[in-house]
Computed example of a mutant assay.
Amino acid sequence: MIPIDFTKSPDGLVPAVIQDAETGRVLMLGYMNAEAYEKTGREGIVTFFSRSKQRLWTKGETSGNFLHVRQMMVDCDGDTLLIKVNPAGPTCHTGADTCFNEVNRGRGLFLNYLQNIIRDRKQNPTEASYTAKLFARGVNKIAQKVGEEAVELVIEAKDNNDELFKGEAADLMFHYLVLLEQKNIDLDDIIAVLQERHAKQ
């Protein structure tokens, strides 16, 4: 279990920030004592200590909208938790996606994760890795592959099969990320260009 100091607070509680592991959206803030923390780590479902009910409270015990733990982290002072979860439905008791009344959509963070995987394949190639084989072929072949995938996407765009279109779009996105890595350009650099253009509009 992650070491955390519950003695810093007179009531033995520490704040727990709950974040969607896929979208990065902050879902809610709750409090945990040592028992709630241990139960959460053991069962993989977020349990808080309810200050109003004065007891352990598993989020979703009534609604079924449990928070399934993906990762638990402690801050540098050892007195605050960040818990990344997969929510099984809306988080707020009002029915909203988050307790801050935000819509919890967007999986763009996965692109950063995928970029890191691609980078690792470049730095630590294996014979079994398709990505490593792409890097071994050089920038010209990677760029050619991006072009081929772009043409296939255009072809699928003219038909009405959404699943095939999405598959080709995913292929293009993947090979585009490989090309960026081959050129030693971070995805954030491209996003910065888009943000700069947007600011000028």
Rank of each mutant, 00 (worst) to 15 (best):
I2Y: 04
P3S: 10
F6M: 11
D11M: 03
L13R: 03
I18P: 00
T23S: 07
R25C: 03
V26P: 00
L27S: 00
N33C: 09
G41L: 01
G44K: 03
V46M: 07
V46L: 07
R51N: 07
R55E: 10
W57S: 00
T58K: 14
E61Q: 13
H68L: 05
H68W: 12
V69M: 12
R70H: 14
M72I: 11
L82T: 06
K84T: 07
V85Y: 05
P87S: 06
G89Q: 12
T91Y: 03
T94D: 08
T98R: 05
G108R: 13
L109A: 05
N112Y: 08
Y113L: 02
Q115Y: 13
Q115P: 02
I118P: 00
R121S: 04
E127H: 12
S129R: 02
A136W: 15
R137A: 06
G138C: 09
I142L: 06
Q144G: 08
L153M: 10
V154E: 14
E156A: 10
K158N: 13
K158L: 11
D159E: 07
N160G: 08
K166V: 10
G167S: 12
G167N: 13
Q182D: 15
D186A: 14
I191V: 12
I191K: 13
V193A: 09
E196G: 09
R197P: 04
